[in-house]
């Protein structure tokens, strides 16, 4: 009987140890996966930011680096828009005094890093403002 008890306790201990080791290994794998994903996201953000800056005018680049936003001029209306470095509702329509009169929101239908979104918005407003605003959502 004591031998059976001892064997049972040893087996239980073995199971617990295996579960513990398995849990630790799984946690390590998940942590590495998360770290890799975070690295990929950082790299993507940096790449998008570099591309954006390459396509900005010198004045826009200066505004973006200083304020985190830049201004573009609509291709049809000549209105000024401020594109802020955010993913949604980030386009301010400005009046002659630089005050916000409306907020617009449109962007690429697939996931892109923020810099790419801002560049797509800039190109759209500067080249085909009407088409861009036709699909955009407007807020105040």
């Amino acid at each position: 009987m004591p031998v059976d008890l001892l064997a049972s306790a040893a087996f239980t201990l073995l199971v617990v140890l295996c579960a513990l080791i398995g849990g630790l290994a799984l946690a390590e794998i998940l942590a590495r996966h998360r770290a890799r994903a975070a690295r990929r996201q950082r790299t993507a953000k940096q790449r998008a930011d570099i591309l954006l800056k390459q396509w900005l005018s010198p004045v826009q680049r200066m505004q973006y680096e200083r304020d985190g936003n830049f201004e573009v001029q609509g291709s049809h209306s000549g209105k000024r828009y401020r594109i802020r470095s955010e993913r949604q509702m980030n386009i301010d329509e400005l009046d002659d005094y630089g005050r916000r009169v409306a907020v617009w929101c449109f962007g690429p239908e697939r996931y892109l890093p923020t810099g790419d979104i801002l560049l797509a918005q800039k190109i759209a407003l500067e080249n085909d403002e009407q088409a861009a605003l036709a699909i955009a959502n407007r807020g105040r």
Binding site: W55, F106, G107, P108, E109, R110, E126, I135, N137
Partner: peptide, 29 residues
């Protein structure tokens, strides 16, 4: 890209273009 800060939308392939960027279809956010 047509120079510092300037760009042009193109619907036909331009073999002389030095840099062409492609972005996915736009939609309201």
């Amino acid at each position: 890209r047509r120079g510092e800060g300037r760009s042009e939308l193109v619907r036909e392939f331009d073999p002389t273009a030095e840099e062409t960027v492609f972005f996915p279809r736009l939609q309201g956010g």
